[in-house]
Design a protein around this nucleic acid. Sequence first.
DNA 1: CCGCATCCAAGTAGATACTG
DNA 2: CAGTATCTACTTGGATGCGG
Lengths: 127, 127
Amino acid sequence: MVTKAEAADLPENADLRRADSLAREIFSDIANKWALLIIEALGDRTLRFSELRDEVEGISHKMLTQNLRLLERNGLLERTVHPVVPPKVEYTLTEPGRALRVTIDGLCEWTQRHLHEIEASRHRFDT
Amino acid sequence: MVTKAEAADLPENADLRRADSLAREIFSDIANKWALLIIEALGDRTLRFSELRDEVEGISHKMLTQNLRLLERNGLLERTVHPVVPPKVEYTLTEPGRALRVTIDGLCEWTQRHLHEIEASRHRFDT
DNA sequence: CCGCATCCAAGTAGATACTG
DNA sequence: CAGTATCTACTTGGATGCGG
């Protein structure tokens, strides 16, 4: 991830810049509350749409669909449609998805560890 | 981080639910593109406002200010105002901020590692 | 140089209703 | 049950200008 603009705009840098913009795009896709919570909720399990909606507290039908599509498009999860009535669609993390999950676990752990510290800081700031 | 609603709504769970909603709030603050990019850009360094704006490519004046305040409020970075003219304001990560940075590094690494795989998956999906 | 306020355009998310 | 579409309210973010 390149955060600083490169000085020269030589043709040789074209692929570098392309990779960077792609990285940015991916980053934007996954660095969002719902996507992360869905990945966490899924974990190692295989869940149906409605199960996922129950697991991810507060997510709307629409947001769930939208983010599931996004994650599927990026190859983080697999969508399996069972041709039965009523319809049954299951979601499970792919290998890249599970790898990502490990780093998200770290994020959650960090949050838990610093919960009180952050709360205190907020209180200080707000006065 | 609790992703599933607890069944019973007993008074004993009140503090648990409070901690959970706090975690959610913190999660929302941090799981956003600009906040993460700012933390990454800052790294171990101490940067001025204008330096940060140059480092985080594409961020607007407003977004930078907004996210810096947010991060400061949560105690992830420290803001130092030097009383000179013209004003000089420096930002540096605090201990919690540096700890968070480590996990974000993991996220960036993951992105780099799966760049091509994701690109391929996107292409498959879009057809 | 840094920050705040304002305005406005664009994107986002909820509610609802309808289909296979 | 899962997904799509539409409508609307709200939030977001960029641009700009002013002030310390």
